[in-house]
C-alpha cells in the first residue's frame, strides 16, 4: 500500500467520520429549519470528501465522476430547500 492510500484510509476517513457525526448532531439539535439545512449542506460536502478520499485510497478514477455529480446535485438540493423555506412563511 502506498503512503497516500494509507493516509487516506487510516487518517482521512476516520476524521471525516467524526466530522459526519458532529454534523449529524447539529441536524438533530436544530433548533430552526435553516439550521438543519446548513447541516445538510455540510453533510453533502463531507460526503463528497469521503468519495474523493476513497478515490485516492483505491486509485480508481471512476469515483471522481461520482464526487462531481454529488457536488452538482447537492447544490440544487440546497437551493431548492432555501427557496421552499422562503416561500413557506
Amino acid at each position: 500500500m502506498t503512503l497516500l492510500a494509507g493516509l487516506a484510509l487510516w487518517v482521512a476517513l476516520p476524521v471525516l467520520g467524526v466530522a459526519l457525526l458532529l454534523t449529524a448532531a447539529r441536524i438533530g439539535l436544530g433548533p430552526s429549519l435553516p439550521d438543519r439545512v446548513v447541516g445538510l449542506d455540510l453533510l453533502s460536502t463531507l460526503g463528497i470528501s469521503v468519495v474523493a478520499v476513497v478515490a485516492l485510497a483505491s486509485g480508481n478514477d471512476v469515483y471522481i465522476d461520482v464526487a462531481i455529480v454529488l457536488a452538482l446535485l447537492s447544490f440544487l438540493g440546497t437551493v431548492a430547500f432555501a427557496a421552499y423555506l422562503e416561500r413557506s412563511r
Binding site: V15, L16, V18, A19, L20, L22, T23, A25, R26, V38, G39, L42, T45, L46, S49
Partner: peptide
C-alpha cells in the same frame, strides 16, 4: 478544514 467546518457548525 472539513473537520473544522463540522466543529464550527456544532
Amino acid at each position: 478544514t472539513a473537520f473544522l467546518a463540522a466543529l464550527g457548525v456544532l
